[in-house]
Computed example of a mutant assay.
Amino acid sequence: MSLLELDVSASPLARRNPVAKLAAALVISVTLLLSIDAVSAGVSLVATLLLLPICRIPARALWLRTWPIALGAVIAGAATVLYGRPDGQIYFEFGLLRISDGSISLALAIVLRVLAIAVPSIVLFMTTDPTDLADALAQILRLPARFVLGALAGLRLVGLLIEDWRELSLSRRARGVADTGRLRRFVGQSFALFVLAIRRGTKLATAMEARGFGADVERTWARPSRLHPADLGLVLIAAGVAAASVGAAVAAGTWNFILGLS
């Protein structure tokens, strides 16, 4: 099993409807996007981490999916510390570089905000099967079946693209055309992968049309997607986390409604 693979059957989130997970993620994300402050983001992030044991998601599996976003958040925070708007006491100044109380607090808020939005979204969607998500989007949200099934088919081919890239690397190395010129090798291999993807996509589109995926008739579904009371409970938990983060920020006096900024 790959390090990125995860058996989600034991997680309670795996049994929740994907639409409910999408709603829960949106509730938390939209709330955190309304303000740039460390308190609301920190409270939301801590609450999410405290709920992880209940979700039964291995910390290693979560970290493997989160570290690129965490690295980006740290880089953004470092840039904000150095180039953010100065406010309060200035600790270091050289040319355009200026570290102050304001830039440090803003950088902390940005890092926590990115993580507070990313972590619950990753937790919710790493326990979602793509087919279940497509069923829910088409049956509950009434999105066009043609679009949903096409997106599902494309998502299912991501693993094949990874395998194609690996096989191209091995075949080019066996022919001796991948020994020098790393940039040239990458460009040539990317173009070859692009051609393979177009050919496979064309064949898949033809096969789907032949099976009636593009017909203008009412579609039936093999697996009905329905909402249950537990799905509402998941959304209410997300709303509780969002309300707690806003309440803590307002009580601390750090709530900074971005739509009210000039």
Rank of each mutant, 00 (worst) to 15 (best):
residue 218 E to S: 06
residue 16 R to C: 03
residue 129 D to C: 00
residue 89 Q to Y: 05
residue 147 F to N: 13
residue 14 A to W: 03
residue 122 I to M: 08
residue 181 G to C: 02
residue 220 T to L: 08
residue 54 I to C: 10
residue 22 L to E: 09
residue 164 D to E: 14
residue 72 G to I: 13
residue 163 E to S: 12
residue 155 L to W: 14
residue 11 S to D: 09
residue 96 L to Q: 07
residue 16 R to P: 03
residue 74 V to R: 04
residue 43 V to R: 02
residue 17 N to D: 05
residue 226 R to V: 15
residue 11 S to I: 13
residue 96 L to K: 04
residue 61 A to L: 05
residue 66 T to E: 14
residue 36 I to N: 02
residue 262 S to P: 11
residue 169 S to M: 14
residue 82 L to P: 03
residue 171 S to M: 15
residue 259 L to I: 15
residue 117 I to P: 05
residue 86 P to G: 01
residue 4 L to I: 12
residue 116 A to E: 10
residue 133 L to T: 00
residue 183 L to Y: 03
residue 68 P to K: 00
residue 214 G to V: 13
residue 76 A to G: 04
residue 236 L to C: 10
residue 187 V to W: 15
residue 258 I to A: 06
residue 157 L to V: 13
residue 14 A to M: 06
residue 155 L to P: 15
residue 97 L to M: 08
residue 132 D to P: 07
residue 170 L to D: 10
residue 157 L to W: 11
residue 44 S to H: 07
residue 231 D to I: 06
residue 206 T to H: 09
residue 261 L to N: 08
residue 221 W to C: 14
residue 30 V to T: 13
residue 229 P to A: 09
residue 213 F to I: 11
residue 190 S to P: 06
residue 243 A to W: 03
residue 210 A to H: 11
residue 225 S to Y: 07
residue 213 F to W: 15
residue 121 S to G: 15
residue 63 W to T: 15
residue 182 R to E: 10
residue 238 A to V: 13
residue 234 L to G: 02
residue 68 P to T: 00
residue 226 R to S: 09
residue 221 W to T: 12
residue 261 L to P: 03
residue 37 D to T: 07
residue 39 V to W: 02
residue 47 A to R: 09
residue 241 V to Q: 07
residue 7 D to G: 04
residue 248 A to M: 06
residue 200 R to T: 06
residue 32 L to S: 02
residue 5 E to M: 13
residue 230 A to D: 14
residue 86 P to V: 07
residue 139 Q to T: 09
residue 90 I to A: 01
residue 135 D to I: 05
residue 65 R to N: 05
residue 185 R to P: 03
residue 59 A to V: 15
residue 182 R to H: 08
residue 13 L to T: 09
residue 73 A to P: 07
residue 127 T to S: 12
residue 83 Y to I: 00
